[in-house]
């Protein structure tokens, strides 16, 4: 018998102003598994992710997290779901460490400074952790945003092209880290264009398309990515 999904998406139609950007999506994500999303630019991957985490209202269909309709206004939902979408926004007068501490303390992490120090090291930001965001490179800001997802507890992690703006080494480290977290029970949903990242992390892949959205194996997805 299949495990009940932590995230259940049924007949979800997403878009703007009532116009769907892709075919309806139906997929379930079991706890401790990772679902990848692929599709060409503009296919609707980011829109699907934003709707799944409640930032956009669905045109039709439902999204349930842990058996309840998604409502990002609920503290319980925000406690359980970490997101790193396409935001590149930071408080200009807070350092990198302060951003991470704010996130950790906001989630009631007891040993916040210790956890933040570890993630700063893990994401290669040790030298720049006390710099203001304006003094960080684009890639370093991306690392900072990603680190924020790991300084806090979460049951579901939603990432939009996490490999974006990262160097090859950091991409591999991040993929290995996420795969390890999935093995430890974290559920991950992410969009990606990187075949290596996809094959390292994903157990199943949702192909987002205009005609039909279907779930395929990572192998088939990687083949599709290589085929362009």
């Amino acid at each position: 018998m299949a495990k009940p999904g932590l995230l259940e998406v049924r007949d979800l139609s997403v878009g703007y102003g009532g116009e769907a950007v892709c075919a309806p999506v139906t997929v379930g994500v079991a706890p401790g598994t990772a679902l990848g999303l692929i599709g060409p630019n503009g296919a609707g991957k980011s829109t699907v992710l934003q709707t799944v985490v409640g930032l956009l209202p669905p045109i039709a269909g439902t999204v349930e997290f842990d058996g309840r309709p998604v409502d990002e206004r609920e503290a319980a939902f925000r406690r359980d779901v970490a997101t790193v979408l396409d935001d590149d926004a930071f408080f200009p007068s807070l350092t990198g460490t302060e951003h991470l501490l704010l996130t950790a303390r906001g989630h009631g992490v007891a040993d916040a400074e210790q956890v933040v120090a570890e993630e700063v090291e893990e994401f290669g930001l040790a030298d720049r952790a006390h710099a203001l965001p304006s003094a960080l490179s684009s890639g370093q800001r991306r690392r900072l945003a990603l680190a924020a997802a790991f300084v806090r507890p979460a049951r579901l992690l939603v990432l939009d092209e996490p490999e974006r703006r990262l160097d090859a080494q950091m991409r591999r480290r991040l993929a290995a880290r996420i795969a390890a977290e999935v093995a430890d029970g974290l559920t991950v949903v992410f969009a990606s264009h990187d075949p290596e990242f996809l094959s390292t992390v994903a157990r199943r892949v949702l192909v987002v398309d205009d005609d039909a959205c279907s779930v395929v194996s990572p192998g088939d997805a990687v083949a599709a990515l290589h085929a362009g």
Partner: peptide, 25 residues
């Protein structure tokens, strides 16, 4: 990750304000 009390909305604002004030001239 062990837990402690989460910051309230007011606490989050205070944290941000104090961090900002530390380097304000």
């Amino acid at each position: 990750m062990s837990g402690t009390a989460e910051l309230t909305g007011v606490g989050v604002r205070r944290f941000t304000r104090r961090a900002t004030a530390r380097r304000a001239d």
